[in-house]
Amino acid sequence: MHLPTEPGPAREASLAVARRAVELGVTLIDTAYMYGGGANEELLAEALHPYPDELLITTKIGVARSEASGEWELNGRPAVLRDQVDRALRRLRVERIELLQLHRIDPGTPLADQVGTLRDLRDEGKIARIGLSEVTAGELDQARQIVEIASVQNRYNLLDREHDPVLEACDAAGIAFLPWRPVAWGGSGARAEVAAVAAELDATPTQVALAWLLDRSPVVLPIPGTARIDHLEENLAAERLHLTGAQRDRLDHLPGAP
């Protein structure tokens, strides 16, 4: 989402970031139609196609420009979802999207129609796995009665644990949980306890926030965004951090955390 796509040096830097991520072992990259109206998908295809066998590009649909205002709005009508999948296939240069996520549930369209359309697209071979984003545990349960759900992408981080019930449901069912905004926009470093743990581990607060997520559950797969290679490398280094039980307990019980 953070990668500039306009022609020029910034785009070249974006291409380099994407390629470096794969070189460093990243096996999942998250994008969406909303990220530039497909421009981010095209950028990733330019950078990485043909994709390595181990790399999964996941994209999201269900948000569209309003014909009246030109603003982004939720749109989960079956015809719109089908059109967005077809366009994503072309932009990503693939015959099948390995993981397709519904960006948001459109309250103006029955959930069964939205998830049912994704199920039909899966049965037609255009989608391999289906995911949801920003859902409640109840919505996840409803969707799972219609089709198998492979992933959930909700806002979740060390300082924002509103969706603990959703993560717990994913953990119980073996569903991948992809927290977006996983480092709280870098705000975790303002907490003294986080800064203290970072100092103990000779790490950055961002790395501590990511390590906490990775330690939270085996189904958690953080998707931190960046437009710089140094930030990318900092984020990936968090995988090598090991929190002690005492450090984990201190982070679990941060003052003011939910």
Rank of each mutant, 00 (worst) to 15 (best):
residue 94 V to A: 15
residue 104 R to L: 06
residue 136 T to S: 15
residue 100 L to Q: 12
residue 200 E to N: 10
residue 39 A to C: 03
residue 122 R to K: 14
residue 256 G to M: 04
residue 77 R to M: 08
residue 233 E to F: 11
residue 4 P to K: 02
residue 147 V to Y: 02
residue 175 I to A: 02
residue 78 P to H: 05
residue 174 G to L: 03
residue 171 D to E: 15
residue 156 Y to D: 03
residue 61 I to V: 15
residue 101 Q to G: 05
residue 145 Q to G: 12
residue 192 A to K: 01
residue 230 D to L: 04
residue 121 L to G: 15
residue 160 D to K: 02
residue 62 G to T: 02
residue 5 T to M: 13
residue 19 R to P: 03
residue 146 I to D: 06
residue 222 P to S: 14
residue 24 L to R: 11
residue 179 P to V: 10
residue 11 R to K: 10
residue 136 T to R: 03
residue 139 E to V: 02
residue 126 K to M: 10
residue 200 E to K: 05
residue 150 A to N: 04
residue 119 R to F: 09
residue 141 D to C: 12
residue 9 P to H: 11
residue 233 E to S: 11
residue 39 A to K: 04
residue 203 A to N: 09
residue 249 D to I: 07
residue 189 G to Q: 06
residue 152 V to L: 13
residue 162 E to I: 05
residue 116 G to S: 10
residue 36 G to E: 10
residue 88 A to R: 00
residue 37 G to K: 01
residue 96 R to K: 08
residue 61 I to K: 00
residue 215 D to K: 03
residue 71 E to R: 10
residue 223 I to G: 06
residue 21 A to L: 14
residue 218 P to D: 12
residue 207 Q to P: 11
residue 65 R to I: 04
residue 187 G to T: 06
residue 9 P to S: 15
residue 102 L to S: 14
residue 115 V to D: 07
residue 113 D to G: 08
residue 46 E to G: 14
residue 28 L to H: 09
residue 232 L to C: 14
residue 208 V to Y: 12
residue 208 V to K: 01
residue 127 I to H: 02
residue 63 V to R: 12
residue 58 T to K: 00
residue 214 L to K: 04
residue 111 L to D: 05
residue 80 V to I: 11
residue 127 I to E: 02
residue 28 L to P: 01
residue 169 A to K: 00
residue 140 L to K: 06
residue 94 V to Q: 08
residue 158 L to A: 15
residue 246 A to L: 13
residue 241 L to A: 13
residue 234 E to K: 00
residue 11 R to A: 11
residue 139 E to Q: 15
residue 257 A to K: 01
residue 118 L to H: 09
residue 150 A to P: 03
residue 31 T to P: 05
residue 228 R to G: 09
residue 88 A to T: 02
residue 161 R to G: 12
residue 87 R to L: 15
residue 43 L to K: 02
residue 252 D to L: 12
residue 160 D to N: 12
residue 13 A to L: 13
residue 44 L to Y: 04
residue 120 D to N: 04
residue 187 G to L: 15
residue 132 L to I: 09
residue 178 L to A: 05
residue 162 E to W: 04
residue 211 A to C: 14
residue 50 P to K: 01
residue 1 M to D: 07
residue 29 I to D: 13
residue 155 R to A: 15
residue 11 R to D: 11
residue 211 A to R: 01
residue 17 V to G: 13
residue 130 I to R: 01
residue 206 T to H: 09
residue 36 G to F: 09
residue 160 D to E: 14
residue 254 L to D: 15
residue 153 Q to V: 00
residue 64 A to P: 00
residue 147 V to K: 01
residue 222 P to Y: 09
residue 97 I to E: 07
residue 101 Q to W: 02
residue 73 E to M: 14
residue 74 L to V: 02
residue 165 P to I: 03
residue 234 E to G: 10
residue 45 A to I: 04
residue 98 E to K: 07
residue 235 N to Q: 06
residue 115 V to R: 06
residue 43 L to N: 01
residue 97 I to C: 09
residue 83 D to Y: 02
residue 29 I to W: 11
residue 109 T to P: 05
residue 66 S to D: 12
residue 181 R to F: 14
residue 64 A to Y: 03
residue 192 A to H: 08
residue 40 N to I: 01
residue 134 E to L: 05
